[in-house]
Design a binder for these strands. Structure first.
Lengths: 130, 130
DNA sequence: TTAGGTGCAAAACCTTTGCCATCCC
DNA sequence: GGGATGGCAAAGGTTTTGCACCTAA
C-alpha cells in the first residue's frame, strides 16, 4: 500500500473527528486541506483503511456508513432523532462471545452493541433531525 | 390503516421467513402470490408495518435494510461471509440500559446487539458470499 | 520504471416519491 | 363517495467503477 497525500489526510481526519463521520463528512473536512480531492477517492480509501484495520466501520442504525478512528472495541449510542453516534465507556463483555459460541456452534469473532434513544441535546428539543 | 391484499401478504411473508429478509427478498416471495405487486408497494408497506410495530427493522452490519417478523427484543448474529442473519437466544440484558443511562445522562430506550463471525455453513466452506 | 493511486464522470444500487387509477371502508 | 393504497416510472441519494493520467517507491 502506497502512502499518498490523500490517504494520509483521510486517515488523519477520521482519527481527529470524534463524531464518527460519514464518507461525505470526511470529504468535506479533507477538502479544507486538499480542495481538489474527489469523493471517489474518499470512498476508496475509507474502504482500504477499513480493510487494513486502520479505521473501523460503525455498523448499525442509519443508512449511511460511518467510520470510527478508534479501532478499540467499544460500544456506541445512536440518537434516534439527530442520528449522531457517541462512544459509550461501558466495558466490553468478551465472555459473552465465548458463551454464545459454545451454545450455538457459530464461530463468533466479536459483537457490536448499539444503544438507542435520545441524546442530551435532543431530550431538551435543541436539535432537529439529522 | 386499511387492510389490503398486498399489505396482508407482505406481513405474512415477513413473519413466515425466518431469514430476516431484505425488501427485495420480501418482494420476490410475495410475487409468488401476487405476481403483479410492485417493489414500491413492498417498500411502502414495510415502512408502515415497521412504524406500527408489526415488524421490526433489523439494524446493523449490511447496507441493505432487513426486517424481522418477530418483534420481541432479541439479539442477532450476522455471518461475515454470506451475510445471513440468525436469531440468538441469549437473554437480553435490560439492566444494561438503565446502568448506562444513569452513567451518561442519555435517554436510552433499548440496545441492539449483533454478533459477528462465520455461520456453520461458511465455516465448512459450503457457501459463497451474499 | 511501473504498479498502484487519483480525478472525473458515468453507472449501479437501493430507496423514496409523484401521479393517476383502483379499492377498501 | 372519498380518502387511503397500489402500480408504474422517474427521481433521489449513496456508493462503486471504468478510464486516462499521475506519482510514490
Amino acid at each position: 500500500m502506497r502512502n499518498t497525500r490523500q490517504r494520509e489526510a483521510i486517515l488523519r481526519v477520521v482519527r481527529r473527528m470524534s463524531c464518527h463521520p460519514t464518507a461525505d463528512e470526511v470529504y468535506a473536512e479533507v477538502r479544507k486541506e486538499i480542495p481538489c480531492i474527489s469523493l471517489g477517492t474518499v470512498y476508496r480509501n475509507l474502504k482500504v483503511l477499513a480493510d487494513t484495520g486502520e479505521v473501523a466501520p460503525v455498523g448499525g442504525g442509519g443508512t449511511l456508513h460511518r467510520y470510527d478512528g478508534c479501532t478499540d472495541n467499544h460500544y456506541h449510542f445512536r440518537c434516534d432523532l439527530c442520528g449522531r453516534v457517541l462512544d459509550i465507556e461501558e466495558p466490553v463483555d468478551t465472555g459473552l462471545d465465548r458463551r454464545v459460541a459454545a451454545q450455538t456452534g457459530l464461530a463468533i469473532r466479536c459483537h457490536a452493541l448499539e444503544f438507542h434513544g435520545l441524546c442530551k441535546e435532543c431530550q431538551t428539543g435543541e436539535r432537529g433531525a439529522e
